[in-house]
Design a protein around this nucleic acid. Sequence first.
DNA 1: CTCGTAAGTTCCTTTTTAGAACCTAAGGAG
DNA 2: CTCCTTAGGTTCTAAAAAGGAACTTACGAG
Lengths: 152, 152
Amino acid sequence: MKWHELGDMSCPVARSLAILGDRWTLLIIRNAFMRTRRFEDFQKQLGITRHLLSDRLSRLVDKNVLKKVMYQDSPKRYEYRLTEAGLALYPVILVLTQWGNTWLDENGKHPPLELVHKPCGHKTDSQLRCSECGEALHAKDMMPVVDTAAQR
Amino acid sequence: MKWHELGDMSCPVARSLAILGDRWTLLIIRNAFMRTRRFEDFQKQLGITRHLLSDRLSRLVDKNVLKKVMYQDSPKRYEYRLTEAGLALYPVILVLTQWGNTWLDENGKHPPLELVHKPCGHKTDSQLRCSECGEALHAKDMMPVVDTAAQR
DNA sequence: CTCGTAAGTTCCTTTTTAGAACCTAAGGAG
DNA sequence: CTCCTTAGGTTCTAAAAAGGAACTTACGAG
């Protein structure tokens, strides 16, 4: 199977990965959440080649994850900002942060990146909870159902 | 920057993506959560080339996300199962599912994949909540802190 | 006129991936 | 015994993607 064919699969994970599933895209989005907006800044911070950065940013704009916003008229300059769909990726960044903190520090050489939840002032470990009953969600408790009735 | 160098970065997202950030790895893990365990089954279900599947499975075993378990003695046959670290990736799969359902159905042609939370019996939209105060987490409320004191 | 800046684009090399064929070890049918 | 099947890979070649460095364009400052 070729990669671009994944975007049409019925599995939402496959569709998500058709956009996000490469070496750089989620790092670009991580930096976007840290308020990086300009081509040069992404390039310097990530060490990505200019070629690839250009390609990935274009794709993210095309897929409505980022939008180009003009910030200077002459010469015209644009910066990249997260759209609503892009902002909705925050949980992805957060769960990857927590997984990396928890499981990828074999030598204990990386200080954990803690996240303070400003409204309550505490260091937080995010938890995925059921929107209906509020309990923490675990793989074994979940049953997938294809909701054909909801298809428009 | 070369890809393998990412594994040593202090950012936990970069370390996570050094393992998970390619076209196939998270799809392999998605299928592992759907109880796929054998080489042939992964290959048929994903349409991945055998070469790449072999490479990715080896890497996941090496990184302690999957483990090889012998299920037949003669000839020796092994299957791949999620380790504790692998099971801890469920939130990643879940948030990618929800993002794909919500944002990647431009033509309304994909029926959403609903998830029923068996303990409460309802279709659920998972929410990320603060472990300390229980409120839903949003990017703008989070402040990263490098906890050097916790470094061993 | 030259320098600097932002946002790319071009060119060439190296690395990965795709796709198909081949290998190995054991078990069973004829 | 010989042939076929199964599971789990490995090998080969061609195509695609990524890396790295230099070049472009459009302006403004000195």
